[in-house]
Design a protein around this nucleic acid. Structure first.
Length: 495
RNA sequence: GGCCCCAUCGUCUAGAGGACUAGGACGGCGGCCUUUCAAGCCGCAAACACGGAUUCGAAUUCCGUUGGGGCCA
């Protein structure tokens, strides 16, 4: 193999990552793994004003959670370290110097003020805005009084002809050089622009394919010209479709795009998220919706990536997550819940449940939750001695207090006698009771459900009672009977 | 505004000239099942943006329009 696949995910640490950022990482990672190549993480922090403390860690944490492991990166180093641009400034300055030497770049002494005036004039005269190349062919630096302190370095772009970019996803895209401006390579503070740093690093890190968001497509001609001027072979480009917010605008913090880290918190599973994110802009065929991590890696190819942007569909994410949840073994679900509560403690379940007990409960809720955070409200009664509910909730539609009280008293008797205390036995004993009392099964079972769990919507009744055990079940229902016997004490009319 | 990208059900998508009465999924609606809620099963509604051209034949090719998005301002 003459060209080993090496790809990079190159985030700017300007804030918490959102799904769009991470989906780019997903496609890049999938591409690397599919081709047995290297996945590199590089931090592009040359925009000092916009860098945010802690952003790098949030990004790495997101990748880790999703299981997107990297082979080289800021934290683990690698053969082309360092992987943080602010620590590679010498490389960029050298490249800028070389470009000046070869005549492909030049120093520009124009002050920000002049540039602003220029722009204003252009706008007023209804002409295209952009740098007028005033310093392009200077023989010597201008007099100090019309020069800004430190010059910037600009790239000398061709002024006629056109530049074609061969994109793996979009095919050949052509840009008129006439419209290209002499963009800045090195800012006056000595920091490189994205364009310079990106090209220098992709080359020096032997990046074979640049997978990046579509928004970079318009600046790609600049990059190909830098490669050419430096005598380097450019990597292959693939501009990925972007993810749009519900209102079809670009995802951004301003539009309330949540931090990606909100998803782990809300109880989504990494594999489900990976599955969902991959299917946003890529598909295997006309029917496959669920693919394991392994299958994703096996099948993922660039040529099946979509060209159009897509909207993030939360309902489908929920469904995908639910599907993964339902397919887990009881033990795996118990472990996932335990891990989730450890990371995000909930007051509803103050003490860590025993794994064995949780694994018995898991099958009862697997098909009732779509995210991990929906579990606690459904099962906290298994882990608490006191349950909380309105007495009125015990009284089902078409029943009154006295009837309910009698029903629960009789339930107590039958449950005391039940042998063994398991779901089948309980159901066999209680179903006839409903008939005997002239109640619908739903009425009787509803009352028992509230008495035992405190919930109107709960996991299946008989299985729950079995897991609760005779002692606790009798205790809870006994308390319910007591409540019903003392009508004056609670349930004031006003509510 | 200039440049670039994109365009199939509300959303994610299949479709690469005849296999399309346009398939699947989420969501919606209806039904079945049912002790609640789910899950499951069955069914229904729902799309090729528009106009030209090429062709015996176009969702699929080309051009234009419109719309959406991105980049630069």
């Amino acid at each position: 193999m003459t060209h080993p696949v090496r790809v990079r995910f190159a985030p700017s640490p300007t804030g918490d990552p959102h799904v769009g950022n991470i989906r780019t990482a997903v496609f890049t990672w999938l591409f690397a793994r599919h081709h047995g190549g290297a996945f590199v993480v590089r931090v592009e922090d040359t925009d000092r004003a916009r860098s945010v403390q802690g952003a790098v860690e949030a990004i790495l944490q997101s990748l880790r959670w999703l299981g997107l492991n990297w082979d080289e990166g800021p934290d683990i180093g690698g053969p082309f370290a360092p992987y943080v641009q602010s620590q590679r400034l010498d490389l960029y300055r050298q490249a800028a110097h070389d470009l000046i030497g070869s005549g492909d770049a030049y120093k520009c002494y124009c002050s920000p003020q002049r540039l602003a005036d220029l722009r204003q004039r252009q706008t007023r005269q209804n002409r295209d805005t952009g740098y007028d190349r005033r310093c392009r062919d200077l023989d010597a630096p201008p007099m100090p009084e019309d020069a800004s302190q430190t010059p910037v370095v600009r790239f000398r772009m061709p002024q006629d002809g056109s530049t074609a970019v061969d994109d793996l996803i979009r095919g050949r895209v052509t840009f008129e050089n006439r419209l290209a401006e002499d963009f800045v390579l090195l800012k006056s503070d000595g920091y490189p622009t994205y364009h310079l740093a990106n090209v220098v690093d992709d080359h020096s890190m032997r990046i074979s394919h640049v997978l990046r968001a579509e928004e970079w497509l318009p600046s790609t001609p600049r990059h190909t010209h830098i490669y050419k001027a430096l005598g380097w072979t450019p990597p292959k480009f693939a501009h990925l479709p972007i993810i749009l917010a519900q209102d079809r605008s670009k995802l951004s913090k301003r539009h309330g795009a949540a931090s990606f880290l909100e998803y782990p918190r809300q109880g989504y599973l990494p594999d489900a998220m990976l599955n969902f994110l991959t299917l946003l802009g890529w598909s295997l065929d006309d029917k496959t919706e669920i693919l394991s991590r392994k299958e994703l890696v096996h099948h993922f190819t660039i040529d099946r990536v979509n060209r159009s942007a897509s909207i993030f569909n939360r309902d489908k994410l929920l469904w995908t997550n639910g599907s993964y949840l339902r397919s887990m073994t009881p033990e795996a679900l118990a472990d996932a819940l335990l891990e989730y509560w450890r990371a995000y403690p909930t007051p509803q379940i103050p003490n860590t449940p025993r794994r064995g007990l949780l694994a018995r409960i898991a099958p009862l809720i697997a098909e009732r939750i779509k995210t991990l955070d929906q579990a606690a409200p459904l099962i906290h009664f298994f882990f608490r001695d006191e349950i909380d509910y309105e007495t009125e909730d015990l009284i089902q539609k078409g029943m009154d207090r006295a009837v309910t009280c009698t029903a629960l008293e009789r339930t107590l008797e039958l449950m005391t006698a039940a042998q063994p205390f398991d779901a089948d036995t309980l159901e066999a004993a209680l179903r006839p009771l409903a008939k005997e009392l002239g109640l619908k099964p739903g009425q009787l079972f509803g009352s028992i459900r509230v008495a035992a769990s405190g919930l109107r919507v709960a996991p299946p009744l008989f299985e729950s009672l079995e897991i609760l055990g005779r002692e606790r079940a009798l205790s809870s229902i006994g308390k319910a009977v007591e409540r019903l016997r003392s009508p004056a004490v609670d349930s004031p009319p006003g509510r």
